[in-house]
Simulated scan of single mutants.
Amino acid sequence: MSNAMKKEMATPQTAKNILAIENLDKSFGSVKILKDINVAIEPGDFLVLVGPSGCGKSTLLNCIAGLESSTNGDIRIGGRSMTGVSPKDRDIAMVFQSYALYPTMTVGKNITFGMKVRGVAEQEQQRKLDEVAKLLQIDHLLNRKPSQLSGGQRQRVAMGRALVRDPQLFLFDEPLSNLDAKLRVEMRTEIKRLHQTLGASIVYVTHDQIEAMTLATKIVVMKDGVIQQAGTPNEIYNQPANMFVADFMGSPSMNLIPASAEKQGDATKISITRPDMEDIVLDFDREIEGLKSGKKSVILGLRPENITDSTNQHITKGQIADCRVDVVEPAGSDTFVVTNLAGKQVTARLNADATIIAGETASFAFDLSKASVFEPETGARIA
């Protein structure tokens, strides 16, 4: 992880931060769930917490909401410490995975119920209801009960209930995980549109890295209660801090290929061994940390789109190699091809009309301009 990235993660609370989490720990008994969490976002940011099940992302969201108390550290919302502040006084609104709608109330009453409890005037309740219902395109559903709605419509109602509060911070806890694949894509677009329209500050939890990449202005990747990397979607995708992030983010995930790197004068060569075929030797145009002279074992990280047809005009002749094709997977707009390099299954992303046949040998172009290089023992990025 770069020093700049570490500095950003540890940024202290400033006047421009809507949310700042500083040195946060959370334990349940002797089990430490969150370990020294440092994150800060500015007003209008869309922060996505992403990671596998059990990584601590939902626990972190619950700590921000005040549903869980932290063991150590501090959370500030709008510059105010949340230590000892109850959830209702944090100026937040939360959208849950389960929608949590009142089954006996109409859509309109579900949305306005919180305002009614807080004593908001009926005229203001109606104004906000009309505004939000139009924004979410559910104004024709206001007299229905939740049981009469589809999953996507229920999720819109849950979002509407949060939006009428106009809080400093919105919290989303895996809101799309109960929807089918097509509806998830549609609702993802709606949430993106809402963020762009309202400029709202959002913290969003998901295990789906596609959601993370498409929605976020900033992503925090977590594993075992530890932040692995924080950055923009572009930084996370193209400059993963370690092999975990490289493997977790991206679909298909980054190819992680055992290789060796060697200095040859001013040039750096990366060699990949193959069973029953000669090594692939590729030119690498960046410095590799720890490589002075001789050979160094490395893990070469290549996205599928960086292994392409040999007709690619941007690849020099020295970056082309013949490989045996094991599997061909047509995917509409692309064709994915699986080959074997250094004992690993490696996926290449080719044009949809690529004429590739399983069991035969084909020429592949290797684009190392966006390649990553990792230390095999620690998994850390070294180039």
Rank of each mutant, 00 (worst) to 15 (best):
I307S: 05
R184E: 03
F244L: 04
L198N: 06
E377D: 11
A342M: 07
G78M: 05
K16Y: 03
A15F: 04
M115Q: 08
H314C: 00
N23D: 13
I75G: 12
A4R: 14
E8Y: 14
P87R: 00
P175R: 10
S27K: 10
Q345H: 14
V107R: 01
V132I: 12
P175G: 12
K344S: 14
A133T: 00
T339E: 01
V95F: 06
N306F: 13
M5T: 15
I227D: 01
L24V: 15
S201I: 01
G73N: 12
S69L: 12
G44I: 04
S363H: 14
R76C: 01
T311W: 07
F170L: 10
K32D: 08
E174C: 08
L282C: 02
V39P: 02
S201E: 09
P376H: 01
K7N: 14
E377I: 12
L302G: 04
A212L: 06
K223M: 05
I288P: 06
L183C: 02
M249G: 05
F170C: 07
D283V: 03
V298C: 08
L176S: 04
M9W: 00
N3A: 15
V298F: 10
A65Y: 09
I356M: 04
R324P: 03
K26Q: 04
I111N: 00
K128A: 00
N312V: 04
T311G: 11
I288E: 02
G250T: 05
L67M: 09
S150C: 07
F374A: 11
S177V: 06
T14D: 13
I64A: 05
F336T: 03
S177F: 07
I315E: 00
F46C: 02
L142M: 05
Q123E: 13
Q148H: 01
R193Y: 00
T217H: 09
E211R: 06
E68V: 06
G231T: 06
V132T: 11
L129I: 05
K292M: 11
Q13N: 14
G114C: 01
Q209K: 09
E124K: 15
A20T: 14
Q313E: 12
A267Y: 01
R154G: 07
L169I: 09
G199H: 11
I357L: 11
L282P: 08
K317L: 12
D353Q: 14
I257D: 09
K317C: 00
G54S: 08
K35D: 10
I299G: 10
S260R: 15
R154T: 04
K57E: 06
Q137C: 08
K134D: 09
K370L: 15
D322L: 13
Y102D: 01
K223R: 13
F244T: 07
D139Q: 15
A20R: 09
S363Q: 15
S369C: 05
S333W: 10
H207V: 00
T316C: 14
E289A: 13
A181D: 11
E329F: 10
V164P: 13
V39T: 08
V85H: 06
G343S: 10
N234K: 13
M115P: 02
N351L: 12
A259Y: 03
D91W: 01
G152M: 04
D276K: 13
A383Y: 06
V117A: 07
A20Q: 13
G44E: 02
K145D: 02
F113V: 02
P52F: 07
S150F: 02
T268Q: 00
I272L: 15
